[in-house]
Amino acid sequence: MATPDPRDARIAELERLLSAALARIVEQDVRIAELEARLRSTSRNSSKPPSSDPPGTLPRKSEPTGRKPGGQPGHKGSKRELLPPDRVSEVVAV
């Protein structure tokens, strides 16, 4: 009967430690990639509001539509109708 070699036990222990360390490295690589992706997200490429962007981020520039500001031609205006004079209690000249 041969006596067990202590070097074989040490080699087996080191192989177990190595496989555990490699598994942990893979887990950490996945976590690092996820955190780096989260760092790169801004309001431009996610559903986050612009106020959550880091300082120094340039604001979005909207594309010009070609329309002038204000009411557009052909649009029916809306305004508050004046009351008839018999329903007014006081008139102030401005």
Score class of each variant (00 low, 15 high):
residue 80 R to W: 01
residue 67 R to P: 00
residue 31 R to V: 11
residue 40 R to A: 15
residue 87 R to H: 13
residue 40 R to S: 15
residue 64 P to C: 07
residue 89 S to N: 04
residue 90 E to P: 01
residue 35 L to C: 06
residue 55 P to A: 07
residue 19 S to G: 04
residue 47 S to F: 11
residue 29 D to A: 14
residue 32 I to Y: 11
residue 63 E to W: 06
residue 47 S to L: 12
residue 56 G to S: 02
residue 5 D to F: 08
residue 60 R to P: 02
residue 90 E to R: 14
residue 64 P to G: 03
residue 74 G to C: 11
residue 83 L to S: 13
residue 63 E to C: 08
residue 4 P to W: 07
residue 13 E to G: 07
residue 9 A to E: 07
residue 38 R to G: 04
residue 46 S to K: 01
residue 74 G to K: 12
residue 18 L to D: 05
residue 56 G to Q: 02
residue 29 D to T: 14
residue 11 I to N: 02
residue 9 A to I: 08
residue 24 R to L: 11
residue 45 N to A: 12
residue 25 I to A: 06
residue 83 L to D: 08
residue 3 T to N: 06
residue 3 T to K: 09
residue 94 V to H: 05
residue 56 G to R: 11
residue 25 I to M: 04
residue 30 V to G: 03
residue 26 V to A: 15
residue 74 G to H: 10
residue 16 R to Y: 01
residue 64 P to A: 11
residue 88 V to Y: 01
residue 27 E to V: 08
residue 73 P to M: 06
residue 7 R to E: 01
residue 52 S to W: 09
residue 69 P to I: 01
residue 4 P to Q: 07
residue 40 R to V: 09
residue 78 S to N: 06
residue 21 A to R: 04
residue 17 L to N: 13
residue 89 S to Y: 06
residue 70 G to W: 00
residue 91 V to C: 02
residue 18 L to V: 06
residue 10 R to Y: 04
residue 93 A to L: 15
residue 33 A to F: 00
residue 65 T to S: 08
residue 67 R to F: 12
residue 33 A to E: 15
residue 19 S to E: 13
residue 28 Q to F: 08
residue 78 S to P: 00
residue 24 R to G: 06
residue 20 A to N: 13
residue 34 E to R: 13
residue 91 V to Q: 13
residue 85 P to C: 00
residue 43 S to H: 10
residue 54 P to V: 00
residue 23 A to D: 14
residue 88 V to H: 01
residue 21 A to L: 10
residue 89 S to A: 03
residue 6 P to H: 06
residue 69 P to K: 10
residue 70 G to T: 02
residue 69 P to A: 08
residue 37 A to I: 05
residue 70 G to D: 07
residue 60 R to S: 04
residue 39 L to V: 12
residue 17 L to Q: 15
residue 5 D to Q: 03
residue 40 R to M: 10
residue 15 E to H: 13
residue 71 G to V: 10
residue 22 L to A: 15
residue 11 I to V: 13
residue 70 G to N: 03
residue 27 E to Y: 09
residue 61 K to R: 14
residue 62 S to Q: 02
residue 94 V to D: 12
residue 61 K to M: 11
residue 31 R to Y: 01
residue 17 L to S: 12
residue 13 E to N: 03
residue 31 R to K: 14
residue 20 A to P: 00
residue 34 E to A: 12
residue 16 R to A: 13
residue 59 P to W: 04
residue 21 A to V: 04
residue 51 S to T: 10
residue 26 V to Y: 01
residue 86 D to W: 09
residue 27 E to K: 10
residue 34 E to Y: 08
residue 11 I to P: 00
residue 11 I to Y: 01
residue 21 A to K: 05
residue 28 Q to Y: 08
residue 36 E to W: 02
residue 24 R to K: 11
residue 22 L to R: 14
residue 62 S to T: 10
residue 57 T to D: 03
residue 92 V to Y: 12
residue 89 S to D: 09
residue 45 N to C: 02
